[in-house]
Design a protein around this nucleic acid. Structure first.
Lengths: 198, 198
DNA sequence: TTATCTCCATACGCTTCAGTATGGAGCGCG
DNA sequence: CGCGCTCCATACTGAAGCGTATGGAGATAA
């Protein structure tokens, strides 16, 4: 007759810590990702943490690797060959980041990249993700008949835009943000519209 | 006959602290901007700091306001009316951020924006800078004969790009980065080339 | 039952950091 | 001379935060 309501999880594994850490990362950034804070959130103490992880950096790298796997899985899924629908896929990649529902994902993205600016190990992992994403997106442009160099330029512009726009605060600038974002997506994807090869 | 070599500065004012803080901000980010670290860099102690500033946040806001003034001064200067050269000015605005010499400025920019993501007071200041920049850049497109809505889209794309590309790590992606950046600048500024109004 | 292994709590030492309190050196000024 | 003002040093408290050491509860297996 023991209550189990306040004992929802009896055990903790590495993945549970990584999941919770990713949540804190989205909310507070790297600087707010402290082991004691994290332990309190998981209703345990540091003793547990240092059993699963060597130190704080061990957790950070684990979070980053987990993030990398997810991002690569996502972009692969979003850009798998679907002949005739490549243009839709390009727009979808743009929209995914603009969507308010993916705000959490973008917060993680920005936190990770801010860390990577000053940490070479993190930078190497971000570089892998960027490389896969750029190549996948370029393949979509190429499939639309866009020549190689222009495809490279446009996919780079695409990703730089979605990250950069998340750093800006522009409510006062334009009243119709929806139209603005649609037009920008057109600018990025435009030549893929109905232009034949070359 | 007292040596003055190791006594280069006898006094410190608020601006000296702000300048040093801006330097640390560029190198270490907001999280690395601590008063004792800053004091050590200025060869003084905290006692001096807390005479010039109420607390750490007082310094951070002062740094941010100083940054704001400089950025607004810069963009005004870069976009003052120069009939017939608006297109050059647009390219110049893009190039200024890509230039390796302005790496320090971009580091500050990114550090400030990462802070502004979670601090509404900082966010308000960044919003002011964004608004001025976007309106100045839009005026250049308008002067080139680009219609209003497209001018809005393109200047937003411009700034999102320059910030976003600074967050990416893409050495492996393309061998000719110079060409890539040139082409992207063309994509952003293109319709302003020789297109008449409408 | 006893031994062992897993997972976590507790307690500790150490460092960094924010902010305060207080004194003191130097300097102008009456 | 002495007074007061400016600017900074020193010394302190207290709070976080990282990492370690150690024990203990609970399960498992012999």
């Amino acid at each position: 007759m023991e209550t189990q309501t306040d004992k929802p999880r009896v055990q903790l594994d590495r993945d549970a810590w990584i999941a919770a850490a990713t949540e804190v990362l989205a909310e507070e950034g790297i600087a707010g990702l402290r082991v004691e804070v994290l332990a309190k959130r998981l209703k345990v103490t540091k003793g547990s943490f240092y059993w699963h992880f060597q130190d704080r950096r061990d957790l950070l790298i684990a979070v980053l690797l987990h993030w990398k796997e997810g991002r690569i899985r996502d972009i692969i899924k979003q850009t798998t060959a679907d002949p005739g629908h490549e243009l839709e896929q390009i727009y979808h990649v743009i929209d995914v980041y603009s969507a308010s529902r993916s705000r959490r994902g973008m917060m993680i993205e920005l936190a990770v990249r801010d860390w990577a600016r000053r940490d070479s190990e993190a930078g190497a992992i971000v570089a892998e993700v960027d490389d896969v994403r750029l190549r996948c997106a370029r393949a979509l442009f190429l499939a639309c008949g866009v020549p190689m160099e222009e495809a490279s330029s446009r996919c780079m512009l695409l990703y730089a835009y979605v990250f950069g726009v998340s750093l800006m605060i522009y409510e006062k600038f334009d009243t119709d943000v929806a139209r603005l974002k649609r037009d920008i997506a057109d600018l990025i994807a435009r030549s893929a519209h109905a232009s034949g090869p070359a």
